[in-house]
Design a protein around this nucleic acid. Sequence first.
RNA 1: GCCGGGGUGGCGAAACUGGUCAUACGCGCCUGACUUAAAAUCAGGUGUCCCCGCUGGGGGCGUAAGGGUUCGAGUCCCUUCCCCGGCACCA
Length: 792
Amino acid sequence: MEKYDPKAIETKWQRVWEDERAFYVPNPEPGAEPDDEFYMLEMLPYPSGNLHMGHVLNYTLGDVVTHFKRRQGLNVLRPMGYDSFGLPAENAAIKEGGHPREITERNIVSIERQMRRLGWAIDWDRVIAAHDPAYYRWTQWLFLKFFEKGLAFRKEAPVNWCPNDQTVLANEQVIDGRCERCGAEVEARKMEQWFFRITAYADALLDDHALLDWPDRTITIQRNWIGRSEGAELLFRIEELDVDLPVFTTRPDTVFGATFCVLAPEHPLVDRLVERSPNADELREYVRRSMAKRGEIRAAAEEKTGVFTGLYAINPATDEPIRIWVADYVLMEYGTGAIMAVPGHDERDGEYAKKFGLPVVTVIDEDRVLVNSGRFDGLPADEAKKAIVDWLGEQGRGRPAVSFRLRDWGFSRQRYWGCPIPIVYCEQCGIVPVPEADLPVLLPEVEDYRPKGKPPLASNDEWLHVPCPRCGGPGVREADTMDTFVDSSWYFLRYVDPHNDGAPFERWLVDFWLPVDQYVGGIDHATGHLLYSRFFVKVLNELGLLGFREPFQRLFHQGWVRQGGSKMSKSRGNVTAPDQLADMYGADAVRLYILFVGPADQDMDWTEEGIEGIGRFLRRLWRIVNEAAGATEGGDGGPLVRKAHETIAKVTDDIGRRFVFNTPIAAVMELVNELGRNPSAPGARFAAEAAVSLIQPYAPHIAEELWAQLGHERLWEQPWPVADEAQLERETFELVIQVNGKVRDRVEASVEESEEELIARAKQSPRVQAQLDGKEIRQAIVVPRKLVNLVV
RNA sequence: GCCGGGGUGGCGAAACUGGUCAUACGCGCCUGACUUAAAAUCAGGUGUCCCCGCUGGGGGCGUAAGGGUUCGAGUCCCUUCCCCGGCACCA
């Protein structure tokens, strides 16, 4: 028997698979109907130079499912790509020199080598990269479709502005309110930006959760993020301005208790209020200061602030004049940017009223019934909501309304390394889309990636100034780039048709493969990528580009693999990179270990303690299977054969139904241990074959080699084993005998025995008799094929 | 504060719909075999307390804490404590 040499075996089989194109998946012939196709997808990596253990967990898990489903006879699409635009490469270029493209492409080469080293079954013909013009051409094309529909648009919105670097910062670049690079305090600034109108899909995004087989917590996170609130919009008349001020409330039942109104400092009516206000100077100063503060700073304020405008609005329920205030605890982004304040029943309003000495009226008593509410007195609060809105509605002073917390998706980035936005600004024509025929708008070369008050792309004058596509007059290109989440909102569609240069994808191909049958990725994308992609698919569906409404049918979140910071890794020194670990123990050991160490959906602190044990297991497997290879075929029945069938059933159920990945490994270990104890028992060969076959999705290299030593070929395409029900059937079982719920004895019993016979046997047990000690048996519970419980 | 997830041996964790002395599988540790020795490998042991006629056998207690439901609870219900994650002036 040769020694187990993981490196040699792994190189050998990886070459065989590549030569045979074992895991390349051709597209169907046109007209093919979806039947046995299965789309397995893991979130694509950002190509940093190195794989980390989180990647290894993510992609090994996907790999196990891929092999499992393939061997169950499904046609499995399992592609890979790179989310290759984005800040890290750009920051590296700024810091160390070089071009973000060179850095990115070097990293892609490196990360792909590491992926191949781990032996993942990937269709490398379908690789895509966000920064490849052949890809981002279609990102731009899709943008144009959204633009035509009015779903991509420009509007003014507050952004993070670093006064020192003269640039807009992404939220991720603001650390504790300061610029991550220079440390200057970041300001809020209003700028015109590009947005996707995701808010128009808020209800669809909520409703279609019903179509998904997703974890509850993810759906809950999305639901909270979208934040649908039902209530009413009520009109508070401001006579001095001759306008009706609309306010949104979820508590129209408390309108009789609305004793003042508050406007956000950004509210469009504020300017007009200032004009009329006796407090104009104070008000103007307050508005100026609040608007320079970012939202988080405002939210963190310990005490509420605000200024009385000196003007009044009419409460539509009481017809009483109430004071109008401007205060920054009211947010312009939510509802109408103005509220009716009900200090008696809203904590925040109450706090405010207390500070400024404003009147407080209680309108709901302890029985949740209305008081001080005129004709509505005595009505239960939940009934009053509708009644009051109806009543105000009849007078034209209110209507039912729904408010969302979800905001439109701002995707302008004043950065270099991203997808250019295909727009030209023309003095005559305004915002003009670049014609489809002129795509892609290639990312221009620039001298300096640092944004200096204008986006880096704008520093290339030659690129920036182009004739207007519509009138031919002087035009200026959009110099912002797109958020990288745009790139990743449709990549899963491109995989099915990655080389198409006439369209982003063929509709029949996406309709054939999608929705994704199993998606695997981190839960950190719950309110980002997973929401954006759903939005994209809904829009593309409406555009007739595809025939489904949801991209990801089933979703699984792998846990976080934490590294560093923990006691363990500090005391143990540096953490080894996955490919180094593969060189030390073999790829199979790394793959097994990351899945064996705990449940895949649970966070873990990375430790290398224990990978030795996997190494031992693989060497033992190698030895024991080699020995069993000499055993004769056949051997029906017997404990070893039964154990093998039980293991087949367990592993199949765990991966297929329960979607758990650590316990199948333990089950195969048990089988191998049993086989090791009985190397020449009947069925040894069968047990060895089962063990090898079952471990193949986890450790495909050693499995393939051992399969060959067992005299077979091409395990990767062998049908997944099926447990023989007949072999699982038992004639006898171990009867557990309990007295008052405590196990007292266990005896062998036949499955044929009746309840009475089992009870009789229980009573006969000497150990039971000792417990009974002459006491009267009041009841006997029998669980068929399991136990008898005697109650005394 | 709100929402979600979780607390099981020295450690990572099993126990899937309440039903086989809870702790499978692995790590670590202990003992033994092989060896001049060590490593590797192999075999055995490893919750806790107690009892006995003590190379064996028996019993009590144990799944964050307390209570409940049940013939039977790690699993279901209630209360409390702790940890992790998300959201957080959203009217």
